[in-house]
Simulated assay, not measured.
Amino acid sequence: MSITLEAIHLLEDRLQSLLSNYEFLKKENEILLQSSTNFQQKILEQAQIIASQKKEYDLLKIAKTIDGSGTDTRDTKLKINTLIREIDKCIIQLQE
């Protein structure tokens, strides 16, 4: 009988240990998920900042080219022509 009781106590101890480990891992998983979400949000914010700065850089590049201080005048003229065509298309669509 004593061996059976010892086995039950050992089983209870192991079960308690497993439950304790489960709760710890569950909390750790929640923390990691929150951290992951925060990092993903920061990555999205940084991507938006990069996109905004790239647009600003492109605008500055166009402005310098129009000013005549750069070597990309041909590219700028092509970009302006493309923008004008897009604006014309929009105007035509609005008139329909």
Rank of each mutant, 00 (worst) to 15 (best):
T37K: 14
Q48I: 04
Q40A: 04
N29I: 05
R85T: 04
N38L: 15
Y22Q: 11
M1V: 06
E6P: 06
D67Y: 04
Q41V: 09
Q95W: 08
E96R: 14
Q53R: 15
Q41K: 14
K77I: 13
R85K: 14
L5A: 07
G70F: 08
I8G: 00
E30N: 12
M1E: 03
L10G: 13
L18D: 04
Q48S: 01
D13G: 00
Q46N: 12
I8N: 07
L19T: 02
I62C: 02
L33H: 00
Q95K: 15
R14N: 13
A51P: 01
Q48C: 11
A63T: 11
L11H: 00
K77N: 08
N29C: 08
S69M: 05
K26H: 04
D67A: 14
D67S: 08
Q41W: 03
I92F: 13
Q40C: 09
N81D: 15
I49N: 14
I8A: 01
S35G: 03
L10F: 07
F24P: 04
T4K: 10
I80E: 02
Q41Y: 01
E45T: 04
L94C: 03
I80Q: 10
I62F: 06
K54D: 07
I92H: 10
Q53Y: 09
R85G: 00
S35Q: 14
N29Q: 12
I92A: 15
E28D: 05
L94P: 03
D75A: 10
N81V: 06
S52I: 12
A63W: 09
K77L: 13
N21F: 02
I87K: 11
L94R: 07
T76R: 06
E45L: 04
I49L: 14
Y22T: 07
T76C: 14
Q46A: 14
N38R: 15
A51R: 00
D58E: 15
L94N: 11
R14G: 04
D58R: 11
E12L: 02
A7Q: 09
E96N: 15
E12F: 03
E6T: 00
E45Q: 10
I62N: 02
R74T: 13
T71Q: 06
L10V: 06
R14Q: 12
A47F: 05
Q46K: 10
L18S: 09
I43K: 01
I8H: 00
L19S: 04
L15H: 06
S35Y: 09
R74Y: 08
L59P: 01
E23G: 10
K54G: 04
H9Q: 09
T65Q: 11
K79L: 14
S2I: 08
Y22S: 13
Q34T: 06
L10W: 03
Q95V: 03
L44T: 03
E30K: 04
K79E: 08
Q34M: 09
R74I: 13
H9D: 02
C90V: 15
L94K: 13
T71M: 05
K26S: 11
K54Q: 13
A63M: 03
Q41H: 01
S2D: 09
Q16T: 12
K26L: 10
I87T: 05
D88C: 07
E45N: 06
N21H: 08
E45W: 12
L11G: 02
K27P: 01
D72L: 04
L83P: 08
